[in-house]
Design a protein around this nucleic acid. Structure first.
Lengths: 137, 137
DNA sequence: GTCCGTGCAAAGGATTTGCATAATC
DNA sequence: GATTATGCAAATCCTTTGCACGGAC
């Protein structure tokens, strides 16, 4: 129920917000750029502006509905925030994104931060490489 | 000997290239944005353009003299590439950057990539937090 | 009806590029 | 002297903002 989720976040229920939320929930790939989401909505016959997509995504990020990532610099990609933390494996060839969680890495990150006197607030681990399919080519 | 290093990289020895290399070698902080480098050169009385700083840094990156990082999105920062890999701890308050290397994390990153069928080409682990000094404030 | 959200176009910041001039080899 | 590098200004890419109109409550 997308409407509920929006209301819970204190956001009015509007067409762009619902459509963007639905796309993020139902699309096969979980990571999308604002441009991709915008294109998808246009293709689906929605009359929406790219600026609105950015605005909605930013609101979603603030509300904790969405996470923003900056992989290989360039543009940001967004994914639904399901609460469970994970890191990313990104194929440098086709852009495919895989998620993973390694408890030992997680633990050691905390140890490292601690040993340097830092209070860790967040971390981003991105592994770049060639996915199985792109290695063959 | 900066001139030698430039020639070795197949780059002509020019004033901007030498000055940028010297700054990266001798500055206390090892991580700098293009803007910072540009400002420093201007303050030192050099007549240089920001575009040249970007061009030189990109050439240095290609030549393996410099590494480019994209921490909290926004702008890139550059550091001299000394060959030895390391990851980064970034203070979200003051921007201070600490380097670290954790063999167990390194090893597990390879294991993760392998288990997903990826050939790892690179990785970036950034831990964000508050450094000791900023926690006190 | 009030207020917030939207589309459009214009602005914004970081980085790149085109071009004539100036420097390196 | 030929070629490559530079500075400047304009262009580009992604993203944000200003504004008048339209929709949500």
């Amino acid at each position: 129920m997308d409407k509920k989720e929006l209301r819970k976040a204190g956001l009015k229920v509007t067409v762009p917000r619902i459509k963007i939320l639905q796309f993020l929930e139902h699309s096969k790939n979980r990571h999308h750029s604002a441009e991709e989401i915008y294109r998808h909505l246009l293709d689906a016959g929605e009359d929406v502006g790219l600026a609105t997509v950015y605005r909605v995504l930013t609101q979603f990020e603030t509300a904790g509905i969405v996470k923003r990532h900056n992989f290989a610099s360039e543009h940001s990609v967004f994914e639904l925030d399901r609460g469970e933390h994970h890191d990313h494996l990104v194929c440098v060839e086709c852009g495919k994104v895989e998620e993973f969680l390694d408890p030992i890495i997680e633990k050691h990150q905390h140890l490292v931060a601690e040993s340097k006197g830092f209070t860790m607030t967040d971390h981003a681990l991105n592994i770049y490489g060639l996915c199985g399919r792109c290695q063959v080519k």
